[in-house]
Design a protein around this nucleic acid. Sequence first.
DNA 1: ACTATATTTGACACTTATTGTCAAGTAACA
DNA 2: TGTTACTTGACAATAAGTGTCAAATATAGT
Lengths: 104, 104
Amino acid sequence: METIGQILRNKRQNLGLLLRQVSAYLDIDQAILSKIERNERKPTKEMLEKLAEILKLDKDELLIQFISDKIAYEIADEDCASKVLKVAEKKIKYLKSNPIPKLT
Amino acid sequence: METIGQILRNKRQNLGLLLRQVSAYLDIDQAILSKIERNERKPTKEMLEKLAEILKLDKDELLIQFISDKIAYEIADEDCASKVLKVAEKKIKYLKSNPIPKLT
DNA sequence: ACTATATTTGACACTTATTGTCAAGTAACA
DNA sequence: TGTTACTTGACAATAAGTGTCAAATATAGT
């Protein structure tokens, strides 16, 4: 099971790209990219899209990995985690079929 | 499909309790509770536990509603939402069966 | 309409998180 | 030793979240 950081790092290295090169393409400091690859910081969606481009990764797949990572870390320590996901799924289906109320 | 705010408000009103009374029990400003019930603010876990007590709700169930609400709102606008949940579930299973890496 | 009570709203100050930048640090290796 | 790639931590700036309060708005009873 790979984290998003690992996915990014592996692909970058397989392509023989340097942090410096990729971070320049994203127009961010390479320190940030380094931290993203070690899961110390989270990329923005904009960064993800650029990363998908330059690393030849599927944009949607990367987004899925990113969000699921976030959720997994968020609730992994709850012992009701899988129940949470089931309920969340129902709520999402409901939200999708109804006008979206405002979020806090 | 009820939000956590709706659940809290319904139960409070069914018990004939006032915002003032419940918020006093929680030791918070009633404005905050009002906002929680309208999903403008998120309760802390401590608030949730107190709310479960005074409103005679199941503590675990309430926590599940709370977290699933958060997740649902977080990803409801993604069109890959259900895929995200599936991947998240796998990741959680993995995390639970392995030493937990540090979170960002 | 008047009063009292319940709830909502928004401004505010305060704290906490998140962010990008930078320079100094380590590690590997020619 | 010198070079290259990457890492780390301190820093300031910004954004996000929190509690408090008073004024505004319901809501119901008389």
